[in-house]
Design a binder for these strands. Structure first.
Lengths: 225, 225
DNA sequence: GCAAAAGTGTTTGGGATACACCCATGC
DNA sequence: GCATGGGTGTATCCCAAACACTTTTGC
């Protein structure tokens, strides 16, 4: 590696695609851009990554500052997604963005520099930059990941009924599943165990609550669906 | 996004993990580092990505310059792998590396700035930087990808026998497969078709040659193995 | 004829799919 | 007693896994 002329790197940025389930709809966290470019448009929470800072740390800092979200506490799962690098993606100049995919539940921005809101993935507003493409890419990755890992845990509370579990899958995959087959299959995977608790709400039979054995990402022995 | 102080980005680099099969062994292309740091060590082909250049283009340029390999011609498949960003990975200073995974066959460096050689993945020399980690990550990704896509095509010649196909899988997966089950299953996937040609070599029955229907990445209907 | 790789079928078990009714509760 | 969601079992089909011998060639 040699310097034949002065080396100038592109700007490095990070962006987060933070998914959650709200009333059995898959939603993504967006912020309203306070400045140009794309002032007033919605965008993924993201920002600059300076030398000396790893991308995940930059992301934590930025998501906390801009959207009031604590990645470590509010997100149950975070992974690097992809690095978007086209020259024209930022009108101010070449910015390479390392993007992350996060999953959580009941993500609530508590303090925020920017107006932060959760939007259904099926009905997104106009988005700044190439953020629509990034969200699509993240959604595809998420669907794939649900098929061969236990990642669904990241969307559920500590204790949950099998109906809630099934509804979570249906919301993200975008199609319905057979109740009996779903339960048989999922229980046979050995990822969850019964608790003594029941959930009672409304005029119907109470539901048994379950817990995940592990809340770390695990690859399934047999893939799902 | 605001500049409260002068923003200085990290160095941006690209690195390529280029796999090929040599005599049914999975090998990876390495170059000998001509300069410090890690002078004399083996490393992945890689280098600096300046502002205005997309990472894939930087990779093409660098791999061509340093190893004499033409990504477009000599590689049958290339995808972005992961972005490695730890601060200490380059002793000269913080360098974020966007890495790529490539697959080809009979990759021969024709002209090279650096000494280039192909090493069996099972027996790598000491490597510079975090390149051992990068190769491991790429190998895992490759194994996973073979299971649910037709990516194996990238390692094979245009026409090949079923035994060659099976041997390619065995080399990369690292374990043996049952011949009858393998043929039955693979033919049922509908990815390949017979040609009229036979391959005769040595004192044994000639082998029917097959071709892939498509030499673009496709996701399998049922996953493999 | 013999060495060496190519090619070929059947059986068995387990998981995927399809499908409909009873249970426990609140009002 | 009725509306609401929770919970359960069986039959069928297809695929995965296990397993050994015949065919074609060069020498």
């Amino acid at each position: 590696m040699k310097y034949t002329e002065a080396y100038v790197p592109p700007t490095l940025t990070v962006d987060a695609v933070l998914f959650q389930l709200v009333q059995n709809r898959l939603e993504v966290i967006l912020i309203e851009r306070p400045n140009d470019p794309f002032k007033g448009s919605w965008a993924l929470p993201g920002g600059y990554n300076a030398v000396g800072e790893i991308t995940l740390h930059a992301l934590q800092r930025i998501v906390s500052e801009k959207a009031g979200i604590d990645l470590a506490k509010d997100l149950s799962y975070v992974e690097q997604l992809y690095t978007f690098d086209t020259v024209a993606r930022d009108p101010r100049g070449h910015a390479v963005s390392v993007t992350y995919l996060g999953c959580g539940r009941e993500i609530k921005p508590v303090f925020a520099e920017a107006k932060t809101q959760s939007f259904p993935v099926a009905h997104l507003p106009q988005l700044a930059y190439d953020h629509h493409e990034i969200i699509n890419y993240a959604h595809q990755r998420l669907i794939a990941k649900l098929m061969y890992t236990n990642a669904i845990y990241a969307f559920l509370p500590g204790k949950f009924s099998l109906s809630e579990l099934q509804a979570a899958y249906e919301a993200i995959l975008g199609h319905e599943l057979d109740k009996r087959n779903f339960r048989k299959k999922f229980l046979s995977l050995g990822l969850i165990h019964e608790t003594e608790e029941m959930k009672r709400e409304g005029a119907h039979r109470p539901a048994r609550l379950y817990k995940f054995n592990s809340t770390k990402l695990e690859v399934l022995s047999r893939s799902f669906d």
